[in-house]
Amino acid sequence: MWTRTLLKNNAKQALRGRYWRSFWICLALSIAGLGGAGASSGSAARQAVDTTTGDTSSVYDILSGIPDSMLMALAVGALIGAVISICWVLFVLYPLNVGRCRYFMESRQSLTPASTVVSTFRRPYGNPIVVQLLTNLKVTLGYILLIVPGVYWSYCYALVPYLLAENPYMTATRAMELSKEMMEGEKWNYFVLQLSFFGWLLLCAFTLGIGGFFLEPYMQATYAEFYAAMRSKALATGMSTTDELGGFVRHDTF
């Protein structure tokens, strides 16, 4: 039976001698837009400033003084920017998300090369994108409808990126089904595990998110330990087999 203390101790052990490599990887991923403790804390701080200083009426005044042709150009630019952003998320951040999971799972066992993070840009490149897209669409739909289903599904499918990191050929239906089974009875425990970082995240907020960049490797290593515990449970209870979850070997085939 896993405990938060055990997972965190294992995470610290996994980071021993590997922390700075993990730090630079997490920092690069945060700059790319993958999120993390530093990015979320900094974003929260920026949103607080924007909310305090924003003046809606002045925005309307500014827009009313702009020629229609310029407004059209701005609208087209915004549309192009939105398309670029969507493509960036789908074709860059989704694979990097799976790659980050793979890196921290492999790092539990040995010093792992940083190139592991981008190994998901190899075959099967498209499948992890499709699976994560379908999963996130379902979660987003749950948030739009009643909020509660979205929260519930987000915890049910929390392990999907790790499953794809271990088996990039897994279908969306199977990944969501297996993640839901593995999270059965564990959703509250996982929430409490996330909540256990609240004090650190609060301190990071006072540094405008900078401290979050140093916290992120520890958090990711802890979540990797959580997946390892859920994986062991899945294999022990017959939810899956080693044919489906074969371990974290490097997928070097193009």
Rank of each mutant, 00 (worst) to 15 (best):
T5N: 11
L141I: 06
V89Y: 13
T237E: 06
G33D: 09
Y94S: 05
T237K: 12
L6G: 05
E186Q: 11
V76D: 02
V192T: 03
K138P: 00
E106G: 09
A11D: 04
T222V: 10
K187F: 01
C156D: 00
V130R: 05
C101Y: 05
Q109F: 11
V83K: 02
V160C: 02
A175G: 00
W88I: 04
V98D: 02
S115F: 07
L203K: 07
M239F: 09
R16S: 15
L159A: 06
A229F: 10
Y125G: 03
N97G: 14
V89Q: 11
G81T: 04
A165G: 08
G142I: 02
F206C: 15
A205E: 13
A175W: 00
R21T: 15
L208W: 12
A48R: 15
I31G: 14
D68S: 13
A78K: 04
G81V: 03
L34A: 14
S240R: 06
L201F: 08
K187I: 02
H251N: 01
A228V: 10
E106R: 15
I147R: 03
A229L: 11
S85L: 12
Y152M: 07
F248C: 04
N136T: 07
W2L: 14
G150Y: 02
Q132W: 06
V92Y: 09
G99M: 08
N136C: 06
L93Q: 07
R231Y: 09
I25D: 05
G77L: 09
S40C: 12
R231S: 03
L215I: 09
N167F: 03
L193F: 04
S64D: 02
N189G: 12
L208V: 14
L71E: 00
Q109R: 14
F206G: 11
L163G: 00
I144P: 01
R250N: 04
K8W: 08
S107V: 04
L29Q: 11
V98Y: 04
Y19K: 13
T171H: 00
N189A: 13
A28L: 15
D68V: 10
T112P: 01
F91N: 01
R122Q: 05
E186H: 12
E216R: 12
L202V: 13
A45R: 15
G142L: 06
A224Q: 06
F198D: 02
F226Q: 02
M72K: 11
L235T: 01
S64F: 02
K180D: 07
Y169R: 11
R102Q: 08
L79R: 03
K12H: 10
T52Y: 15
T51L: 15
F214M: 13
Q13C: 12
L63T: 01
G65S: 03
A11S: 06
A236N: 06
S58I: 07
A11L: 09
W88H: 10
M176Q: 03
T135W: 11
K180M: 08
L6R: 11
Y152T: 01
L74V: 04
Y223L: 15
Y169T: 03
